[in-house]
Design a protein around this nucleic acid. Structure first.
Length: 402
DNA sequence: TCTGGGGTCCTAGGACCC
DNA sequence: TCTGGGGTCCTAGGACCC
């Protein structure tokens, strides 16, 4: 028997958070993003979309398209709070929940649907959707299908507050007429190439693949089996409740201005290395491979990103070691060209307790103690900085009122 | 003033070993 | 005389997603 997998997607979540804070914004064109040198729109309201504004667009361009656009920075504190409420609300219906990001998840409803003798799947879902709205004021779209892929395509099909059921027998009717760029996994590089060989819809793509069309295979031969499995309802229906281990941890930072002098860039790199060391310790991981990322400042109609990496002789979470190796790699690879962004990533990760076998127990215990201390010092530093900022702003207010 | 930041997965070539 | 074939690891880059 096939499962009942739901994909639940919050509609324009970051915008909705602002509307909940300030209901007078409802119905207005809103973009979430920062003003300034490197601001982009992370998401925008449906009203803004009418003007052509879309996510990923630089804010200056969005402003050009829609001058009355109201720009708000993302309020991550409230976003995280509401995201947790969203997840905990859904867990009432099934504990088989896989969170994909702050605003979407899969839910395996097979047991709960049948156990409580429901007989109308649409009403059952409508109830979940309305309940979420009542409790949190958040709007969502729900897709239902026998596989995760079909559920995901379903939640995307109708927004906002849509409910779409895609059984295997509905695939031809619902998915085949859709533009091929709506296929989850076909992105902005591939779809124009598909258009060129006269593949415009998902149905076109399916038929060409079935026929082993030479031109189609030359573009996406490696994805053939996967795409066919998706469109025949044969992909995964397993909702993974355990958060999977991270494969890499990294940060990047856009510099306050374009830089080409090593000594100017180094402090920013050091800061990124510090952040990653802290994250490694918090995740209880050790890393073996380090990567530095640069983005060129000037490059004709594209920002070229280059990476250099190095695999170290041992797994580590030691700040001194990561800093030493990071700087060495930077020194040997940086060509002195103008860059606008710098980043540091670690990969090739193992659990810290796995490393016990690689060091003596005493050394392991010393390492654990050192790390506890490291996290504590970081927390004190953070709290201290916050305190200083609060006092500074109090002082400013006082002086301002005089 | 002028395109974020966090990830995953895949590929291809080269080095190296047996 | 002159270099197979399989496997693994490392590195760089590309495509995609939220």
């Amino acid at each position: 028997m096939s499962k009942i997998i739901a994909h639940i997607d919050l509609n324009t979540f970051f915008v909705r958070v602002e509307e909940i804070k300030d209901p007078s914004l409802i119905g207005k064109p809103i973009g979430i993003g920062n003003e300034g040198r490197s601001g982009i729109i992370s998401t925008c309201s449906y009203e803004a979309r009418k003007y052509g504004v879309s996510s990923g667009m630089p804010t200056f361009e969005a402003k050009k398209l829609c001058p009355q656009l109201i720009l708000k920075p993302a309020d991550f504190k409230l976003i995280n709070l509401l995201s947790r409420e969203f997840i905990s609300y859904l867990k009432q219906f099934s504990n088989k929940l896989e969170q994909l990001s702050c605003d979407e998840c899969y839910l395996d409803l097979t047991d709960s649907y049948y156990r409580f003798g429901h007989n109308n799947i649409y009403n059952y879902l409508k109830n979940i959707q309305n309940g979420l709205y009542k409790k949190t004021k958040l709007k969502c779209s729900i897709g239902i299908g026998p596989t995760k892929f079909l559920a995901k395509m379903g939640s995307d099909y109708k927004k906002p507050m849509g409910i779409t059921i895609i059984r295997k027998k509905d695939i031809k009717n619902i998915l085949f007429p859709l533009d091929v760029k709506n296929f989850y996994g076909i992105g902005k590089k591939t779809y124009p190439k598909l258009y060129k060989i006269d593949i415009h819809t998902i149905g076109d793509l399916y038929n060409k693949l079935i026929q082993n069309d030479y031109k189609t295979l030359s573009l996406i031969s490696n994805q053939k089996d996967y795409i066919l499995a998706c469109l025949e309802g044969r992909t995964s229906d397993i909702v993974e409740t355990q958060r999977s281990d991270p494969k890499s941890i990294g940060t990047t930072r856009t510099l306050p201005f374009d830089m080409s002098i090593k000594d100017d860039i180094t402090p920013y790199l050091l800061e990124e290395i510090k952040r990653i060391t802290l994250a490694l310790k918090e995740e209880r991981k050790l890393a073996k491979t380090i990567t530095i990322t640069y983005k060129d400042a000037k490059c004709i109609d594209d920002f070229k990103t280059t990476t250099v990496s190095k695999t170290l002789d041992e797994f580590t979470d030691n700040e001194e070691k990561l800093t030493k190796e990071g700087l060495k790699l930077f020194d040997s690879s940086f060509k002195g060209n103008e860059i606008r962004l710098i980043g540091f990533t670690v990969k090739n990760l193992i659990d810290r307790n796995e490393a016990v076998t690689q060091m003596t127990f005493d050394n392991y215990m010393i390492h654990e103690k050192e790390n506890e201390l490291y996290l504590l010092i970081n927390k004190i530093n953070r709290d201290f900085k916050k305190e200083v900022l609060v006092r500074a702003s109090d002082l400013k207010k006082k002086n301002g009122n005089r």
